[in-house]
C-alpha cells in the first residue's frame, strides 16, 4: 500500500482547511495512507528566506528530519511548503558545508537529518502513482458537463518542474478529464496570483487576480481549480474586492482539485469541506445526484 508522511502546513489548519479535509478524504478513499508528521512546524515560508536563510532552512529541516524517522516520502499539499521543503533538500545537497550548518542547528534540538526524504505533491501522487486508469475505474460520479479552469499557480511547477512542464503543465488537465469534466483552455494557468502582495500591496494583487478571473470567464470556466492555499484565498476570499475595484460581477467558485476528485469518487460535499467555501460551487455540489454510468 502507498503511504506518505503528511505535512499539512500552517495554512491547511485554518484558511485552507477545505484542502486538508478533501486531501485526507480522497487519499483514504483511494487507499493511500497519510500519516501526519507528529509535531511538525512551520516550513519557514518565503518570509524566512527573505531574512535569515540558514535559520529558515534549519527549521524546515526539522520537518524533514521527523519524516526521515518515519521512513516515508512526504506529501505536502501547500505549494509554498512543497517548494520550501524541496529547496531545503536541494540546498543541503548543493554544499556539504551548508548541510553541516543546518545539522549543527538541528543537533541543538537533539536531531539530525542525514538520509534525504523526497517531497511530493498530492497532484503528482494521484496522477502518477495511483494512475489515471485506476482513478477512472474508481469514479462513481463522472463530472460530465462541468467546465473547469485548471490553475496551477507558481510554486508546484517553478523553479523546478519536478513532475510537469514549467510553462504548460498538463497534470491537472489530465486529471479533470479523467473525472469526466472538461478542462477549458486557461492561458494564465501558471501566472502568479500576487501571493502575499494581497497583504502588503493590495492593488497589485487585485489586478493580477482580476486578470485570472477574467481569463476563466472568457474561456468558459464555470469554476477555477487550484492546488495552492494562497492562490485559493486570493481568488476566492478577495473576489469581492476585485469586483469592487474593477466594477465586475464575478461569482466564480474556486475549489481545490481534490474537491473534484472527491465528488467523482462518491464522497459527500461535507466530507470534503465544500460547505466551508465562501462561494458555493453549487454545480459541483449538485453532482452528488449524478448516477454512475
Amino acid at each position: 500500500m502507498l503511504e506518505f508522511a503528511y505535512y499539512p502546513g500552517c495554512s491547511l489548519e485554518h484558511t485552507a482547511s477545505p484542502y486538508d479535509k478533501s486531501t485526507r478524504a480522497v487519499f483514504k478513499s483511494l487507499g493511500i495512507g497519510l500519516r501526519e508528521i507528529e509535531d511538525w512546524n512551520c516550513c519557514g515560508a518565503t518570509m524566512y528566506m527573505s531574512a535569515k536563510k540558514i535559520v529558515g532552512y534549519s527549521i524546515s529541516a526539522r520537518n524533514l528530519a521527523l519524516a526521515q524517522e518515519m521512513g516515508l516520502e512526504i506529501c505536502a499539499p501547500c505549494s509554498s511548503c512543497y517548494t520550501i521543503l524541496r529547496k531545503t533538500n536541494r540546498h543541503i545537497a548543493w554544499d556539504p558545508k551548508e548541510g553541516k550548518k543546518i545539522n549543527e542547528a538541528l543537533a541543538a534540538a537533539g536531531m539530525s537529518y542525514t538520509k534525504p526524504v523526497n517531497v511530493r505533491h498530492p497532484l503528482d501522487i494521484i496522477v502518477n502513482d495511483v494512475g489515471i486508469d485506476v482513478l477512472k475505474s474508481k469514479v462513481t460520479r463522472p463530472l460530465t458537463g462541468l467546465k473547469v479552469a485548471p490553475y496551477y499557480g507558481c510554486q508546484i511547477v517553478r523553479p523546478v518542474g519536478y513532475f510537469d512542464d514549467k510553462d504548460d503543465p498538463q497534470t491537472m488537465d489530465i486529471l479533470i478529464r479523467a473525472l469526466g469534466a472538461e478542462a477549458v483552455a486557461y492561458p494564465p494557468k501558471v501566472r502568479c496570483c500576487g501571493g502575499m502582495l494581497m497583504t502588503t500591496d493590495e492593488q497589485i494583487a487585485l489586478k493580477l487576480c482580476h486578470e485570472l478571473l477574467q481569463a476563466a470567464a472568457e474561456n468558459g470556466g464555470e469554476m477555477i481549480a487550484t492546488a495552492c492555499p494562497l492562490c485559493h484565498v486570493n481568488l476566492e476570499g478577495f473576489q469581492g474586492k476585485v469586483n469592487a475595484q474593477y466594477s465586475t460581477e464575478f461569482n466564480i467558485p474556486v475549489i481545490y482539485f481534490t474537491h473534484l476528485v472527491g465528488i467523482a469518487l462518491g464522497l459527500s460535499p461535507e466530507e470534503l469541506g465544500l460547505d466551508k467555501l465562501l462561494i458555493e460551487p453549487s454545480k459541483l455540489m449538485a453532482m452528488k445526484g449524478v448516477v454512475a454510468v
Binding site: D39, I59, A107
Partner: peptide, 23 residues
C-alpha cells in the same frame, strides 16, 4: 471556521527555539 482566533503552539517549541538560536 477558516480563521483560527488563537495561535496553535507545537508541543516541542523548545526544539524550534534551540534550532533558531543555534542557526
Amino acid at each position: 471556521g477558516r480563521m483560527g482566533l488563537l495561535p496553535k503552539r507545537i508541543k516541542r517549541v523548545s526544539q524550534i527555539q534551540a534550532i533558531i538560536k543555534k542557526a
